[in-house]
């Protein structure tokens, strides 16, 4: 019965189609659960595809990729972790939907002997310490990346340049870190911050909010957008206001739709975090842990500044 359940679990991961002998070899491979946020998000969709490619290349583990319905479906993500504990996977690689709420199911997983790797958004260090659990973090430095992108704008404008910020969802860890990066750049290059507002990562909302900011502050020279979707909305608002070329924009994420805008100069820079690579690095870390190594601290993953010169 136990083995049948196990086989069913493996089957769900899509390996039963292999010939019988290969399937037996497969059974001995460690199983890694990859828990992401919303697969409706291009970033996580890329991550999932990159992870599947990577596991196929490695060939020494089986991957169960899982995602939730929406970015804020914290309950749903907790249920996914609990499912993986029940299925007795060897390791869980997780991009937490919330940096605190996921800690108690992860502590349970750690107690069940499952190796853990935290990717994308950092889990709350103090809360982990309270439970005496240490989880390695594999991910980009959102703050540093945002600063890289913002520095391009700051250098183009020079000291005293008047800028506004479009923030992500209030309270979202990556949104907060990106704003911190923007603020650091503003302080270093002595820019003048006129206003900072959320557009909830959304193109249409960014378009509306930025048009209104521009009315209130017609002298805006630069815009720092927390993601590329919002940067696109800003660019369209600038065009509509007849100020094309007069206001400089930077974004974050490096999605495909931003590339033509960077090429034609409407967006100065964005930062690619290599979502596909991120999960692959997480899986590598998990396999090292399964192999007996103990990883701690922050394994920083590469980011790339994209400008007209690099595309």
């Amino acid at each position: 019965m136990d083995r049948r359940t196990f086989l069913a679990g493996i089957g769900a991961a899509g390996v039963l189609s292999l010939p019988a002998s290969a399937a037996w070899a497969q059974l001995k491979k460690p199983v890694v659960g990859l828990v992401m946020k919303s697969l409706a998000n291009e970033f996580f969709k890329n991550m999932q595809e990159g992870a599947l490619r990577h596991v196929e290349e490695r060939g020494d583990c089986t991957l169960i990729p899982l995602g939730i319905q929406s970015e804020t479906d914290i309950d749903g993500q907790i249920a996914l972790v609990e499912n993986l504990i029940t299925r007795k996977v060897d390791a869980i690689v997780i991009a937490p939907a919330d940096s605190r709420a996921l800690i108690s199911p992860l502590v349970r997983a750690a107690k069940a002997g499952i190796k853990l790797v935290n990717i994308d958004v950092l889990l709350d260090a103090n809360a982990l310490k309270k439970h005496h659990v240490e989880i390695v973090f594999v991910g980009p430095d959102n703050k540093e990346g945002a600063k890289m992108s913002a520095d391009v704008l700051a250098k183009a404008l020079g000291a005293g340049g008047k800028v506004v910020i479009l923030e992500g969802n209030p309270g979202a860890a990556n949104g907060v870190q990106r704003k911190e990066g923007f603020m650091e750049s503003i302080a270093q290059y002595k820019l003048d911050l006129l206003d900072s507002r959320t557009a909830h990562w959304e193109t249409e909302e960014a378009n509306t909010v930025f048009s209104n900011m521009l009315t209130a502050h017609p002298d805006i020279q630069g815009v720092m957008a927390g993601n590329d979707d919002m940067a696109i909305g800003v660019v369209k608002a600038i065009e509509a206001a007849g100020k094309k070329g007069q206001i400089k924009v930077i974004g974050f994420d490096g999605i495909a739709a931003i590339q033509p805008l960077i090429k034609n100069g409407e967006v100065l820079a964005t930062v690619d975090q290599f979502g596909a690579q991120l999960a692959a690095d997480g899986i590598d870390a998990a396999m090292k842990e399964i192999g007996g190594q103990t990883l701690t601290g922050w394994v920083k993953t590469p980011m790339k500044l994209e400008t007209a010169a690099t595309i």
């Binding site: 409706a40 998000n41 193109t203 249409e204 378009n207 696109i232 369209k236 509509a240 739709a257």
Partner: peptide, 8 residues
């Protein structure tokens, strides 16, 4: 208006 179509 926004020159994109995005599933979300």
């Amino acid at each position: 208006r926004l020159t994109i179509a995005n599933p979300i």
